[in-house]
Amino acid sequence: MDTELATAKTKSNTFRFNKAKKKKCLSFLMFLTPAFLFYALFMLIPLIGAVYYSFTNWNAASQATRFVGLSNYIEAFTNDPYFKESMLLTIKYTAIVVIVQNVLALLIALLIEYRNRTRNLFRTVFFMPNMVSLIISAFMWSFIFTIVLPQLSEYGLSLLDQGWLGNPDVAFYSIIIVAIWRGTGYMMIIYIAALQGVPVHLKEAAIIDGASSFQNFIHVTIPMIMHAITICVFLTLNEAFKVFDVVYGLTGGGPGRSTQVVALNIFEEAFSGNFRYGYANAKSMILFVIILIITIVQVYVMKGKEVES
């Protein structure tokens, strides 16, 4: 009895000794558990599941799921021409959208920077398309492409008389138009904020000294807003690689597969045709890794430039 009491006492001593640490631990848990719980349920576990299933033949038709090793990955790389084509198309799309969107956004931001009274008005107008959901934008533009532009072409603008969504060669660019229309305003806001950090005397010098203002822009302004450029390129890159809603709403990947981007290819592999969930998961893992590598390289390279300046 006595010995028991004694051990209990020593225990409580060590407990007191660790109490501060324990309390810290407890509060750490209290603050982090809720976030972690939701994160684990809806992000982590599904992700682990997706990795696991990418090695199986899980599909909608058969209820038994078998482990198939690397064969899904091998198939994606060697025997799936559509996946490869959709990947190449997505890369092309990403390249165009990232460049055009950022150049245009920066240009508009610069123009707006020079306005005083109308600055806010323009900011508001250019950002407006961002309020319209992607899928709704796609529907709006289907109307513009199928009804408005053909009628507009009758006013001597024969260039506008295209099979905007029906011609496989044109449809790709129609998607890009919508993406740029909707995305540019967002980047513009970030660039405007960054430009406000550029000292006024530098900007004034650029206005007055017209001849060298472009030089000025390249050598003074650009380095000073490099941080914002890194962010905007990161955001557009990420968004463009995962593009789905706009394509889904405008062309559904068609005609044929002419505008099938990689996210749509994965979606269709999973939810149409043979409903091969396992295989679609494998392809989505490949997409994940590619996005990971590209963004890491991009941020690394551009961060390096920031330090230089």
Binding site: P168, G253, G254, P255, G256, R257, S258, S272, G273, N274, F275
Partner: peptide, 15 residues
């Protein structure tokens, strides 16, 4: 699955 594949490839062929 073959029918839905044909939707895609016939469009491509016809284009």
């Amino acid at each position: 699955a073959v029918k839905s594949e044909s939707e895609r490839v016939f469009q491509t062929y016809l284009a």
